[in-house]
């Protein structure tokens, strides 16, 4: 006897099948929703005269909102609680802890005008790289052929933020496997100082329970609440040293995980539609 109850013996394979089906549906969404209608929408946005960046950012947001709406339908045991305060953020740099590949998708879905830093190798991927370039995202490494892009993006950032855009970044760089806050890159702080923009520190929880690092399948069968809350707001102040700002962000991210408020179920929402 391995100590497994007969009930678990039956339900575990069912749960795995359900997880596999949800995973398949999610990948199906990414592929088929891109082929139709999003490929046409991106194509239209590219052909229209005027600035492409805001259009591509908005379309990216729609694309990932669609993904989270689908998840809400096919994985209803996962609830999404997002502070109203977070949804109202504009003209700011956002820093957030990083738990899962879903984190950047959630940010993209949440903000219509968004920029972020993307691994440079993704810019070389056909179609995906084209979308990233047209949306005005940053390559993580401004070397070689990406120098020009990096210069243009950094120089245009102040104007972009002033116009209501947000620049979000996960300063740990990679996903935390144990929930602890890793060492922080200072890029976001430097951008905020350079552009005299406020920094909003957000704390995210629960995305790793839905899609864990190193796993292929979504854990759709389990009950979970994904929360995104604002835990600190730092006004632009050139006098604060980089080290002090980094320390403050680290502390906010660390205590954000320990001083959490109980989630209010009445606030449960799928992005954009309460």
């Amino acid at each position: 006897m391995d100590g497994t109850s007969p009930e678990a013996t039956i339900t575990r394979p069912l749960a795995r099948c359900y997880d596999a089906a949800v995973t398949l549906a999610c990948w199906g969404y990414f592929i088929f929703a891109f082929v139709f209608p999003f490929c046409l929408i991106y194509g239209g946005a590219w052909l229209l005269p005027g600035r492409r960046e805001p259009r591509f950012q908005r379309i990216n947001s729609w694309y990932y909102r669609g993904f989270f709406r689908l998840l809400a339908i096919i994985a209803p045991r996962h609830r999404l609680l997002i502070d109203e305060e977070v949804r109202r953020i504009r003209s700011a740099v956002i820093v957030c802890n990083h738990l899962s590949y879903l984190d950047p998708l959630l940010m993209l879905a949440l903000f219509s005008r968004q920029k972020t830093v993307v691994k440079t190798r993704f810019f070389k991927v056909p179609i995906f790289g084209w979308v990233l370039r047209n949306a005005g995202y940053f390559p993580a490494d401004g070397a070689g052929r990406y120098r020009q892009m990096m210069i243009e993006q950094v120089e245009g950032m102040e104007k972009y933020l002033a116009a209501g855009g947000v620049f979000f970044i996960f300063p740990e760089g990679s996903r935390s496997r144990d929930g602890e806050i890793g060492s922080l890159h200072r890029g976001a702080i430097k951008i905020a100082r350079l552009c005299r923009a406020p920094i909003h520190v957000l704390h995210l929880e629960g995305t790793d329970r839905l899609f864990a690092p190193g796993k292929f399948f979504f854990h759709a069968h389990m009950a979970n609440t994904i929360t995104l809350r604002k835990v600190d707001h730092i006004s632009p102040d050139r006098c604060q040293s980089l080290g002090d700002l980094e320390q403050r962000i680290r502390q906010a991210l660390a205590t954000g995980g320990t001083n959490r408020q109980p989630a209010d179920p009445s606030q449960a929402n799928v992005l954009g539609a309460r």
Binding site: A143, I151, V154, K190
Partner: peptide
């Protein structure tokens, strides 16, 4: 890093009194 380099370029432009080309 690259962000610092771009910020420094802005300061060099101010110091020299002219804009740098791409």
């Amino acid at each position: 890093d690259s962000i610092d380099a771009i910020e420094l370029l802005g300061k060099i432009e101010l110091m020299l009194g002219f804009s740098l080309s791409r």
